[in-house]
Nucleic acid binder design. Sequence first.
DNA 1: TTGCATTTCAAACATTTGTATGAAACTATC
DNA 2: GATAGTTTCATACAAATGTTTGAAATGCAA
Lengths: 229, 229
Amino acid sequence: MASDQTRSAILAAAERLYADRGFGDVTLRDIVAEANVNLAAVNYHFGSKDELIAELFVTRSIQTNRERLNELKAAEEAGGGRAAIEDIMRALVGPTLRGCLGPDREGSTAARFMIRASIESVPPIRRIKNREVDHLRKFAAAMRRAMPGRDDTELYWGLHFALAMAHHTIREKERLLRLSEGKCDLDDVRAIIDRVVTVSVMALTMGDVPSKPAARPVLVHGRLTRQDL
Amino acid sequence: MASDQTRSAILAAAERLYADRGFGDVTLRDIVAEANVNLAAVNYHFGSKDELIAELFVTRSIQTNRERLNELKAAEEAGGGRAAIEDIMRALVGPTLRGCLGPDREGSTAARFMIRASIESVPPIRRIKNREVDHLRKFAAAMRRAMPGRDDTELYWGLHFALAMAHHTIREKERLLRLSEGKCDLDDVRAIIDRVVTVSVMALTMGDVPSKPAARPVLVHGRLTRQDL
DNA sequence: TTGCATTTCAAACATTTGTATGAAACTATC
DNA sequence: GATAGTTTCATACAAATGTTTGAAATGCAA
């Protein structure tokens, strides 16, 4: 068997098993059994179990981050170098939410894996997440351009809350579903993104002159209307 | 040694070690060494390692939940049976945030333990968290009374987002601190609670007639002013 | 004290786990 | 087809871990 096939088989099997049963319950022996390869193959190809997990997570993270930056770039080009704050937030939370939620994603191994990675927090994944700060700074910079003069602190809190809503929705979607007795539609990803973006923008602009209704973000961009919520 | 002393010593040592080093890195042998008791004492007094962890978490959870319900009750009594939505949200996120953040809490074992429990997600703790839905329903009910006529879906999303911001702030406080280069003050718990409450109420009321500026939550209750944000 | 229940203790158990080894099989190049 | 490099494989290793055991110690009531 060609070397790449074994590598790929391990990656695929590992992602599937981790997605289904979580990191705590899956051993290397489970993985190699699922992949139909020898136990030693994991250490031969990846060095260690942790490096295997890291590679799985890095691969998916890079995909998401690339999508985010693509969306951000597109929004900035469309706005002539300065994107609207709403579009920036959309670029931030959209890829993550689309990647993990939605009816078609139910069967997606990648989606389930990323949800697991979000819920459980194993050392190799935590190490990678810690490097995410550099990536987020690009969004902070874009936000600063979109809202010049605004205090940086407000900006960071807005960014933080946007990620909070997105990740918590992914993490706790089962609980929200149970709490709301199915009333909250976790499959309508577009609506969820709109919702998160709207609240994020509200949080970011809440210091704005309250006497001018036109300054309200929901109205400014016109994309979000009441029925979207 | 009296039986209770051993039990207490194990609980205290376990909470301290879990708080400092996380669930993944602490073994029963570490705990009994720290507590100066015999290895078998854990299984004798608690049955299993998981039951020990469960007892630790349940104890702290009950404290938080009780504080939440007390605040809710106080708010409802003050409002003549119907609490203001802002106070309900404050009762929801206040105890958790106060319990885990703040300069004085830095050295608190309980606080660090709960942060760990929020970050890592071990099976016994996950099982307990799943039962939290019943507790949250009481807040959903209070919210329903505070905002009659509003669609339940909106209400659940608001509740969900409030918890999202609170828990994510606890979980990711280090990252937010690093991202903002210390600009976000994670020690000013009162300000953080105000912030989370304000955004939550905004999220809950954002469907309200946008043409009437007076309907904006920040202005309605008057307690939150611009300098709070 | 005697007797009974509770608690402590040292030691062993029984797995499970990731990793290492060294030979065998395979592949590609000359 | 011989050789060198790569990959696979069965097996062993070594260490860690939660749990159990049965005896010893302790506490307590009669």
